[in-house]
Simulated assay, not measured.
Amino acid sequence: MTEKPEQPKPAPGRLRRLTARSVPPLPSLPAWWPVPACAVLGALCAGTYGMLQEPEYRSTGYVIAAPAKGTPPDAALGYAQAYGRITSGDSTLTYASVTAGVPAATLRAQVQTETSPDSPMIAITGTSHTPTQAADIANAVADALLTKSNGMTQNTGVKLVDFSRAVPPIASSSQPVPLTSAVGACAGGLLGGLVLLVRPRRPGEPAAPTPLPAPAHSTDRVGAERERV
Rank of each mutant, 00 (worst) to 15 (best):
A68K: 02
A68P: 01
K69R: 14
T71H: 12
P73K: 08
D74M: 09
L77H: 12
Y79C: 00
A80M: 10
A80K: 00
A80Y: 05
A82V: 08
Y83S: 02
G84C: 07
T87G: 03
S88E: 10
G89I: 07
D90V: 13
S91W: 04
S91E: 05
T92V: 10
T92K: 11
L93T: 02
S97E: 04
T99V: 10
T99P: 00
T99C: 02
T99H: 06
G101F: 04
A105W: 07
R108C: 01
A109K: 15
V111P: 02
T113S: 08
E114V: 11
T115R: 14
S116V: 06
S116L: 14
M121I: 13
A123I: 04
A123G: 02
T125C: 07
T127I: 06
T127W: 11
T127G: 14
H129N: 15
H129K: 10
T130Q: 09
P131E: 06
Q133E: 14
A135I: 07
A135S: 15
D136P: 05
I137M: 09
A138L: 06
N139Q: 09
A140P: 06
A140D: 00
A144L: 02
T147D: 00
K148W: 08
K148N: 11
K148Y: 08
M152P: 00
M152N: 12
M152E: 14
Q154A: 07
Q154S: 11
G157C: 11
G157W: 02
G157E: 08
G157H: 07
V158M: 07
K159Q: 13
F163V: 02
